[in-house]
Design a protein around this nucleic acid. Sequence first.
RNA 1: GCGGGUAUGGUGGAAUAGGCAGACACAAGAGACUUAAAAUCUCUCGAGGGCGACUUCGUGCCGGUUCAAGUCCGGCUACCCGCACCA
Length: 803
Amino acid sequence: MATAYNHRAIEQKWRKNWEEHPVNVQDGKKPKYYCLDMFPYPSGSGIHVGHWRGYVISDVWSRYKMLQGYYLIHPMGWDAFGLPAENYAIKMGVHPAKSTAENVAHFKEQLSQISAIYDWDREVNTTDPEFYKWTQWIFVKMFKEGLAYEKEFPINWCPSCKTGLANEEVVNGVCERCGTPVTKKNLRQWMLRITKYADRLLNDLDKLDWPEKVKKMQTDWIGKSYGAEVDFPVDGRDEKITVYTTRPDTLYGATFMVLAPEHKLAASLAVPETKEAVEKYIYESSMKSNVDRLQDKEKTGVFTGSYAVNPLNGAKIPIWLSDYVLADYGTGAIMCVPAHDDRDFEFATKFHIPIIQVIAKDGKEIENMTEAYTEASGTMINSGEWNGMESSVLKKEAPHIIEKRGLGRATVNYKLRDWVFSRQRYWGEPIPIVHCPKCGNVPVPEDQLPLRLPDVESYEPTGTGESPLAAIDEWVNCKCPVCGADAKRETNTMPQWAGSSWYFLRYVDNKNTEELVSKEKADKYLPVDMYIGGVEHAVLHLLYSRFYTKFLYDIGAIDFDEPFQKLFNQGMITGKNGIKMSKSKGNVVSPDDLVRDYGCDSLRMYELFVGPPELDAEWDERGIDGVYRFLNRFWKLVMDNKDKNVEPTKEMVRVRNNMIHTISQRLENFSLNTVISAFMEFNNRMIDMAKDGGMDRKTLETAVILMAPFAPHISEELWEQLGHTGSVFANTWPEADKAAMAEEEIKIPVQVNGKTRAVIEVPADISKEDAIAAGKAAVAGKISGTVIKEIYVPKKIINLVVK
RNA sequence: GCGGGUAUGGUGGAAUAGGCAGACACAAGAGACUUAAAAUCUCUCGAGGGCGACUUCGUGCCGGUUCAAGUCCGGCUACCCGCACCA
């Protein structure tokens, strides 16, 4: 009687064994494969079954690559700066460094249950001064290249987090982190000139093997548009207003102009009769929050009393102010063509402004227009010398025509804004800049980095727009590194994204004190081949990382300009009814009990079995029984047959090769849930075959190797039980022998008028005539009428059309 | 509003390239083993009709193409995600 499957003993045994005899070793010949997980923020609540999924997916993929002969870079680290640790510090008075260290230890412990093949020698932690030294170094380099600059302007401000936010961190007008409506606050900010990289960030998406969805999101976020800036003189004044438009073809249809209330000329355009109303409107707009402005369904506005002159035809058009025009996009002013733009149409209708159609719809002018005609297709009308042209053609030519005639310029615009990079909080990397009254902004010399984060008495953000660091006089007051004069340190810190924008580079050379990463190691191990994580980072983290990588490429620190070749977004594991797992909802499922009762191997496989890896899945832990039963049956099959020395039959060889083929193919397609199904099916098949006489050893061994990436512990143990001394991972991923897979007899359904009426078993190489004859014979009794058509798809189906 | 995705039994899901819909599991029911329970093993398991061999219907809804449609085309509906006055 063979021993039963004891997951606890086996898993303990092999964990220890792997520690003593690592299986991922470089022999000097293997090519590298870098498989990266998005590193976690080590929160106090630990990891749940949802976190497991991503880590299991990446580990299965890593171990598969290892079996294919690669040397793995599969590291793990900690994105440990950030608000929760700081808020905890405010509440409990515990230094964030201390609570972070505790959380990291706890996380690491929980992570070890997954038995992922992480190389802990490569571990990084963004809060480690030896790490953030390089985060600061990158900032200094950016500053020197003119990519980091200071600017005072109204930024997104979260009143709850008491800090400024990047555009990317504002979701539907509320703070991405806490959900508080975001307001505007005039603050001096550090900015990163990510817009300088807009075109490269856009164009290089083509090089990447990423989900189309993520590429689309980044494309939309960058938001490149082609158009023209057109200069409109202000009637009766020696001034002009420049507008940006993507539809210069409709210039003849402009019947008014609208400026954002924040436009620098807004107030000055008022005339005595409108002065009061204009000032009131500007004031009220400034009081509105982002949410209010977004939620205003009906357009508001005020006429300034001034007119602009259409440079093309000299028409005088009224200048209005309205907050539907954004101050920080384009020029903050637009020309309005109500006939061909929905928003302008709405505004014109409300304020009784004339509408002039300039593109014919279906060849004619629309009577009683009820909505704007927004297509750029049709013949130009009411457009002077442009009459008769096709609008789609004119749309492309107009910017150049306008430029040639000196009325404006062909222009490109982006929705992407520069990155607001400073935060008014404590727990982040200090920005390494000294403000000197004589020299201005001076970076901390590179040999003085890291600029350490000092201890403070109070972590509480001041709320005034100053970081808690501003209260530490002995830290703030310093000497200018250039002239030695009394100077002050920058007290803002960096956003959490700073460290995560480049951490993946550091893993391959994490102990280097001289360089961010050595050339030699960068060339050897970078870039990342496969990056696995949630979609929530589709824009923020992934865009920032690409920007950082391109910058480091430009200054010669690395030789590649895209960090992640392939990206996979795993779906979320949710609680009942698709509700996101969270502590506050009380629906968090801890893996601890499941690992104890079923074992790591069972949970690993079940995490994959719940559904397609890219889709969300509702957690239902009852299903894990199925996987556990399967592992028990597989164990028993191998143990019962390992010593029988059965000669493989043709059928066994066929099953073996079929198994290799099916598993490999599904794995390559990342259809991990169906890989598990396939294991179960082949297991059932083998158990069935073993009933008379047993199974051959080679097929059992093959199954064990194929299982190894998924259930590494049981596979190691069974490999040993099969009489081998080395690790199962010392094997090479098997290849299927296509010839051995071929069936001699195949089953073909026979349909009559598309409905299956019989299934015949025939030789695989049967001729068309013989197949149809056999099919006809099989359904002879079920045909009433004459066969008028015979369909035979080789090895697939026979269909007889009967009338 | 715009863009993307999804819709299949009681449940999770499967179905290369248009070819037997429901693989593999979960749950449920029946049986075997057991003093009993657990575990394990065997069987049933989309809906309707028929004693039965069988048969009709069935992949969100309406229509189409095809010998053949979950899969392709046209038109909807619901839910989810992203963007959201970017001129």
